[in-house]
Design a protein around this nucleic acid. Structure first.
Length: 383
DNA sequence: CCTAATTACGGACTCGGAGG
DNA sequence: CCTCCGAGTCCGTAATTAGG
C-alpha cells in the first residue's frame, strides 16, 4: 500500500472527491478536519468514555457566564444511567426513547425534550444524541447512545450528564497554502483556540517575570491559591476538595501535523500559543492521519467498505444527507470504526505525540482523565 | 421545511521593515 | 524610492445546528 503524506492526500481528495465544489482544495481541507474529529471521537469512545461524552455543548467562561463557547467534545459526570430495549419501527426519536424509560427507576420530570433522532430510518446514527435537558435544581442533560442491535431490537443506554464538564477536547487543523511555506491565517485560529482554552477552567494560568508558569485558583473561603502550574495541577488531580475541583476543567487540544504548524524540532508560533494554552496539546501525526485515510478510503481490499461508502455518499452533488461527521454517521460505518479503534487501540494511540506537558505520554493523559472521571462529583457539586 | 448563528477551512488583502 | 517578504487581519464558502 502506498502511503501518502497528508498534503498529497488533500490533493488526491480535492481531485477525486471534491472536484464538484467551487474550491476543491478547501473542501478537501474541511474533510480532513472532519477526519481529525472522527479519530478523536472514536479514540475517546474506545477509552470507554462514550457515556460521559457530549458534542458541541455550549460552555460558559469561568466566572463570566455572559460569554459561552461551543466545545467540540466534553466529558461530564454521570448522575444516573439506565438501559432500555427498543423494538419499535425506525426512526428512534427522543420522544420514543423518553417514553420507553421506566420513570420509577430513572426520574425525568421537568426535562425538556430535544428533537434529535438517535437513529434515522435510513440508518444514520447520531453520536452522543442529546434527548433532553433540564435547568431544574441543577443543569444537566440526557444523552442516548445506541449500544447494539440484534434481531430488530435496539439496546440504548441513557445517561444523565451534569452540565459542567471535567474535561474538554478541541480539534484543529490548518493546511498549507498553495505556494506559501508558512500559513498566515493559522495564527488566528490558534488565538481563537487559545482564548477558549484559557477561559473555561477555574485553574488560571499566570506567567511570572522569570517566565515560569504559575497556576491560580480561587478557593471558597476567599483564599487564592497560587503556585507553580504543574504542582497545582498535581494537587488538583489528587484532591477531593470541592473548592479545587468544582469549576476545574482539564483542557485538551488535538491538532493535526502540518509543515506550517511545526517542523520536527522547531515549533512555530501558532503551536507555541496552543501548547501554552491547553493543559494538554496532543498532535495527530501525518503518519497517523494518512494511515487512517489510506485504510478507510484508498485501500481497495480493506474491511472499510462501509466507511468508504459513507464518506463518498456524503460528498457528491447528488448527496441527500451527510453521513460521515462526528455527529451524524452511517450506522455500519460507525460499527466498522468502533471495532477498528477497539482492535487497534495501541496503534491508534501511537498516532499521537504529546506536545505539552513536556515529556508526558498518552497513557498519562488517559490516567488523568480517568482520575477525574472517578471523583465523587455528586459530593463535589453537593447534588 | 426555512432562517439565523456558529464554526472551520483556504485565501485575499494590508502593513511595515530590511535591503538594494 | 522600490521590491520582497514575513506577519497580521479580514473575507468567502460550505457544513452544521438550533429553533421556529
Amino acid at each position: 500500500m502506498t502511503c501518502y503524506s497528508v498534503d498529497q492526500l488533500q490533493n488526491i481528495l480535492a481531485n477525486n472527491v471534491f472536484n464538484y465544489t467551487k474550491d476543491p482544495k478547501k473542501a478537501a481541507g474541511r474533510a480532513l478536519g472532519t477526519m481529525v474529529e472522527i479519530i478523536t471521537f472514536y479514540l475517546l469512545k474506545s477509552w470507554g468514555l462514550g457515556q460521559s461524552l457530549s458534542i458541541e455543548r455550549s460552555l460558559a467562561e469561568y466566572g463570566n457566564p455572559d460569554i459561552t463557547h461551543n466545545v467540540e467534545y466534553s466529558l461530564h459526570p454521570i448522575l444516573q444511567q439506565c438501559e432500555v430495549f427498543f423494538s419499535e419501527k425506525l426512526p428512534i426519536t427522543s420522544t420514543k426513547i423518553l417514553s420507553s424509560i421506566d420513570k420509577n427507576v430513572f426520574s425525568i420530570t421537568r426535562f425538556e425534550k430535544s428533537n434529535n433522532s438517535l437513529l434515522t430510518s435510513d440508518l444514520i446514527l447520531r453520536n452522543s444524541c442529546l434527548i433532553a435537558s433540564s435547568k431544574e435544581l441543577y443543569s444537566s442533560h440526557l444523552v442516548a447512545n445506541l449500544d447494539f442491535i440484534s434481531n430488530d431490537e435496539y439496546k440504548i443506554i441513557i445517561s444523565q450528564q451534569y452540565e459542567k464538564p471535567y474535561a474538554i477536547f478541541e480539534c484543529k487543523r490548518v493546511g498549507i497554502e498553495e505556494g506559501i511555506k508558512k500559513g498566515p491565517q493559522s495564527i488566528e485560529k490558534a488565538k481563537q483556540g487559545a482564548y477558549v482554552a484559557r477561559m473555561l477552567s477555574s485553574l488560571q494560568k499566570v506567567r511570572m517575570p522569570s517566565g515560569e508558569l504559575y497556576g491560580l485558583i480561587y478557593k471558597f473561603n476567599n483564599e487564592i491559591c497560587i503556585k507553580p502550574y504543574a504542582e497545582l495541577m498535581t494537587e488538583i488531580m489528587e484532591s477531593e476538595n470541592p473548592s479545587l475541583l468544582c469549576d476545574f476543567i482539564l483542557t485538551v487540544g488535538v491538532v493535526s501535523n502540518h509543515g506550517n504548524w511545526f517542523t520536527s524540532d522547531n515549533h512555530n508560533k501558532e503551536l507555541k500559543v496552543l501548547a501554552q494554552s491547553y493543559d494538554w496539546l496532543i498532535f495527530l501525526t501525518d503518519k497517523g492521519l494518512s494511515e487512517f485515510i489510506n485504510h478507510i478510503l484508498l485501500d481497495s481490499e480493506s474491511n472499510f467498505e462501509p466507511v468508504k461508502k459513507a464518506f463518498l455518499e456524503s460528498y457528491n452533488t447528488k448527496r441527500k444527507r451527510t453521513r460521515f461527521t462526528k455527529v451524524q454517521i452511517d450506522y455500519k460505518a460507525d460499527q466498522t470504526l468502533q471495532s477498528y479503534f477497539n482492535d487497534n487501540l495501541i496503534g491508534v494511540e501511537n498516532w499521537f505525540n504529546v506536545i505539552s506537558p513536556k515529556d508526558k505520554s498518552m497513557q498519562e493523559l488517559k490516567s488523568q482523565i480517568f482520575r477525574l472521571k472517578d471523583k465523587n462529583w455528586k459530593e463535589i457539586h453537593s447534588l
